[in-house]
Design a protein around this nucleic acid. Sequence first.
RNA 1: GGCGGUGUAGCUCAGUCGGUUAGAGCGGCGGCUUCAUAAGCCGUAGGUCGGCGGUUCAAGUCCGCCCACCGCUACCA
Length: 688
Amino acid sequence: MSRRRILVTSALPYVNAGIHLGYLVEALQTDFWLRFQRLRGHEVRYFCGDDTHGTATMLRAEREGRTPESLLEEMKAAHVADLVGFGVVHDHYGSTHSAANEAFVAEIWSALRAAGCIDEREVTQFYDPEAGIFLADRFVVGGCPRCKSPGQYGDNCEVCGATYEPGDLIDPKSAISGAAPEERSHVHLFVRLEEFHAFLEEWTQAPGRMPPETANWLRGTFLAEPLRDWDVSRPAPYFGFEIPDAPGNYFYVWVDAPIGYIAATREWCDTTGEDLDRWWRDPECEIHHFIGKDIAYFHTLFWPVMLKAAGFQLPKAVHVHGFLTVNGEKMSKRKGTFVLARTYLDHLSPEYLRYYYASKLSSRVDDIDLNFDEFVQKVNADLVGKVVNLASRTARFVKGERLPATYPANRDGGLFAAGAAAGEEIAAAFESLDTSKAMRLVMGLADRANEFVESREPWNLKKDPARAQELLEVCAIALNLFRQITVYLAPVLPRFAEESARLLSLDGGTSWADAARPVEGAIVAKFQHLMERVDPEKVAAMIEASREAAQASEVEAAARGRAGGSGTDAPALAGEPLAPECTIDDFARVDLRVAEILEAKAVPKADKLLELTLSLGGEERRTVFAGIKKAYAPEDLVGRLTVVVANLAPRKMKFGTSEGMVLAAGPGDSELFVLSPDSGAKPGQRIR
RNA sequence: GGCGGUGUAGCUCAGUCGGUUAGAGCGGCGGCUUCAUAAGCCGUAGGUCGGCGGUUCAAGUCCGCCCACCGCUACCA
């Protein structure tokens, strides 16, 4: 096979968040693949960097009373350290907030201008007169126009799932200052994507370009109708790059984020003397992006359009992975399953997670689950019990001795040759990102090697000095099979592979082809522990530490006057600000009553609604629809006391009229917590 | 409701162009071994391949319908 030239990227981590186990799915999948390609002898370069721009960065820097730049520098250092801690090493890790990036953004922008596909149009948006900035939907909060739940974002309601415009909110407030926003219009710039429709159709549907799930999704959604214009500008103030020919306007983050891939390459070229065009303007170079399914749309529609317009090489493949769940559910800060990379490293070896992810990942876009019980069991059984043990149980018999000058291939039952032959199948699995298959194949080799040791009983040979030669051969075979396995595992477990090589007095420089060449005449070093077993207590300690960290950050957020978000990717301003001050008279207008839940039943055609029959004492009954179906089973609610807004105007809904509102806290979905009075309260009593 | 995806042994998953008795790993159970990081080896577990119907000499594997779950989207509060 000829030597391929491959440029690899992982999605740019957002500067305002720490690296966590979810992002590591991507970073490690990328790392497995590129290390594999390097072992195969290809020329591979890996670029990434921080995604820095946007309102959130600007606001956080303001809040912390520092420049965005110092914030960026600190976060980048932390990100790089975390990734390096997991063995993920980039050729260059840049930032979207760089001169190089600004230059490429300008270049691509002028190409889009030249192509004549930029439009200008007025956009009316909420504006915070106190903070002096336009508010994205996420920065406007207010009452949901449909279910009246307070504190909802400007684009959709987390309680009832309604979608609407920020202007529809009841009593909208800026999430930044709490001020009442006003509507203002401003010119925005748009890219007319529809002109690229045919190109995108052809490009996205090309075989191997992206997983079939993703290609089908695009074909069935965006590409099925005319593409909408893409709003690429944001009015000042905005932390980002000013649009050169439209002063006062800034590029939307998703314009400059992917361009950061090119900018990182540029900076690398500047330090190494490499030629950028050899990587970004050469059809011989393969560009591979690794991304999560949530950002497939940016990488498969806008990104290729920008590249095409500016004459850059288009990606050969966009590799899409699913999300990470932990113990079968969405990562939860409250449960301690939202684990930062740093927290993991404080407790456990990165190799465990590398192997576990490798054993779970395939080329599918499926979500993968990190089940900690399975994690412990799998790592210990496969890596320690099967692989490490293979060396551990044989090396000591021949410590300090020299392996035969010729590998005794006629005495290994064809195992080494079979292992070498399996190399291409394993390689194909790595190539197609099917590392779970690769790991399965490798473990099969380890099984056969252990059977071999079992059948030859080197421990008995050891007892008979006359059979020393036979013992040496048996061990030479076992150690060579071990060596073969470590080569195949090297993309996933590079440190382990390197340390294993030392057992046979080999220095680094492993290549895939080494798996087909037996080691002959080498001195066997003293066996040293290559890997500790996973201690379940350390896993528990890590989860506990994550839970505590999450609580600490919530306290911190509360101290800033905001409740901490509990979502896995809550933006910095996830919480809602305190509502404006009210008087006791204002409060008295809301008549809160203790209510007993007499009946509760699921509304069949609604995802989120339960129909509750409440008693307010005596014969007073109320029917209330509550959006808590995902959090409560109806039977668990019957007989409970709760708190209801008793004088809320009745609301006609598709399924009936709701005559009140049951109070609950939490972000929504399954994370909802209905209020209960202390024991002793009676239905109908007023809450004041 | 629409679109996409998924549904194979307790768990995690393989099953290539449809072809003979449906597989692996882990767990469980029984036995062996004791060199090895309480590791290893052997045996075993019998799952309506989500359901129904169709095409075919032959379907887990193709087609249709249905069900469940996940995602996106819509609608309804």
